Amino acid sequence: MGMVNNIGGLMMVVSMAVCLTSVANAAQGTATFYTPPYVPSSCYGYQNNGVMIAAASDAIWGHRAACGRRYSVRCIGATNKGPPPCHGTSVVVKIVDYCPTRCHGTIDLSQAAFSAIANTDAGKIKIEYIQWLIF
């Protein structure tokens, strides 16, 4: 009976790991950032979703299908001359808003999310992003 419980526990851990990671390869794009206030948002109105959030451009918006999706975003380089902006970390953000046609990036990160992965003086960075699949 003990071995059956161990196998069941192992299967649960493996299932959780699969559910929290993406099965797709990372896409590349650019990120910009926006400053508070973060409400209202296109997806959630006046609901507070914290600060690890982002607005989706037309590239990933999908007529509101992006609402609630989570993306792991990593800075991979500068879009202009200057010191390297990347901190070498990644951040997971929740899509809560729409960045309209004037959006200058694939993902418009909250200032807090952007500053977690890059120097905000850069303004715009090259990124890799992966959608997290959570079941």
Rank of each mutant, 00 (worst) to 15 (best):
V51H: 11
Y38M: 04
V92I: 13
A78Y: 00
V4R: 15
V18D: 09
C99V: 02
Q28E: 15
I7C: 10
T32E: 07
N119A: 09
L133Q: 14
A112S: 12
T120H: 10
S41L: 14
L133A: 10
H63P: 00
V51G: 06
V23M: 14
G105V: 01
Y129T: 06
G9H: 11
A78T: 01
V93N: 04
V39P: 10
K94L: 11
F135V: 08
A55E: 01
C67Y: 00
V14S: 12
V93D: 07
K124C: 05
S115K: 15
Q131P: 03
K124V: 03
D97G: 07
A65G: 06
C86S: 05
R70Q: 14
L10P: 01
F114D: 06
I117M: 13
C19H: 12
R69C: 12
C43F: 07
G45V: 10
G77M: 01
M11V: 15
K81R: 10
W61G: 00
G50T: 07
S15Y: 11
M16C: 12
T32I: 09
A56G: 03
K124I: 05
T106V: 05
G45H: 11
M1L: 12
V91P: 03
I134F: 10
C86V: 05
I7N: 08
I134M: 11
H87K: 15
Y38C: 02
C103P: 03
I60F: 05
G82E: 02
I107C: 01
A27D: 13
A54M: 12
M16A: 13
V51Q: 13
D108Q: 03
T120E: 14
A122C: 04
